[in-house]
């Protein structure tokens, strides 16, 4: 028994399986499929039509469609992952989870594992919309490069979501933070316009979010850039993703300590 609990891989796997079961215990699979196919379509449509209306020569509809196709990942990797701690609170399971000797990192990364799969599916569908409905030209695309960009961005943004999730241990709800960061990416991450459009003081914040590197790399991959040409951006994205995950773990321990000492763990 104690061997099972001290084995991080086993804890990770059981946490991942449990998270998937818990999701479908309340979410009808048909509803999940509707969400998977519907969310990105309307987000891309909204910004593509806005771009068409504004008609800025520096921002093509293709630019906007690719940016939003990748950013649709945020619903899963930021919103859903950020709410992990909040949902544990709502279900009344956070105390049991935190008093168990299981490795924290394995438990919470495991909780997010299904969302990585969910995120990959969401973005793949979003890129299909970009090609089939919004007429993005994929004739020159480096598909392997694009798949790598999607994979790295999904992992990095899930790390970002986990970092935000740690706030949910201390705050009454993580839903507010999740909502803020779900939308703020649309403004800061070069999704709808180049980061250079932003005021100088905001641009460092853009580069602290992995999605910024991802959107730029995705556009390059669609234009046919090789893996070698993408490696700089992908390396930076992976590095930022790694840093936010480590920061998230440290924040998690810090907020766990604060929540225990102030008795706010079950406040929601």
């Amino acid at each position: 028994m104690s061997e099972n609990v001290s084995n991080p891989l086993r804890v990770f796997w059981s946490s991942a399986v449990l998270a998937k079961r818990a999701l479908f215990a309340w979410l009808n699979p048909a509803m999940w499929i509707m969400q998977l196919f519907g969310m990105s379509l309307f987000q891309i449509a909204f910004f593509v039509y806005v771009a068409k209306f504004v008609n800025n020569s520096e921002v093509s509809m293709e630019f906007v469609a690719i940016g939003n196709a990748l950013q649709s990942l945020a619903y899963v990797s930021v919103f859903a992952v950020c709410n992990i701690t909040g949902e544990e609170k709502n279900q009344g399971t956070i105390e049991n989870l935190l008093v168990s000797p299981a490795n924290r990192f394995s438990v919470f990364v495991g909780r997010a594992a299904f969302q990585i799969v969910n995120g990959l599916a969401t973005v793949t569908i979003a890129f299909l919309y970009a090609a089939l409905i919004f007429n993005v030209d994929f004739s020159q695309a480096n598909y392997l490069g694009l798949a790598t960009v999607i994979l790295v961005t999904t992992f990095a943004m899930t790390g970002f979501g986990l970092m935000l999730s740690s706030l949910g241990l201390f705050l009454r709800t993580s839903m507010i933070v999740a909502n803020i960061f779900l939308f703020i990416g649309l403004l800061l991450c070069g999704v709808n316009f180049p980061v250079s459009f932003l005021p100088g003081y905001l641009q460092p914040f853009s580069y602290a979010i992995p999605m910024t590197y991802g959107t730029e790399a995705a556009r390059m991959a669609v234009q046919g850039a090789s893996l070698g040409e993408l490696s700089g951006l992908l390396g930076m994205e992976a590095l930022v993703g790694f840093i936010v995950m480590i920061a998230g773990y440290l924040m998690f321990r810090g907020f766990e300590y604060l929540a225990r000492s102030k008795g706010t763990l079950d406040r929601f």
Partner: peptide, 17 residues
């Protein structure tokens, strides 16, 4: 906050465009 943040950010995106 959640109900304010989305429209506010979306309006900002449009204006930045």
């Amino acid at each position: 906050i959640p109900n304010i943040i989305a429209p506010f950010v979306l309006a900002m995106v449009v204006l930045m465009l």
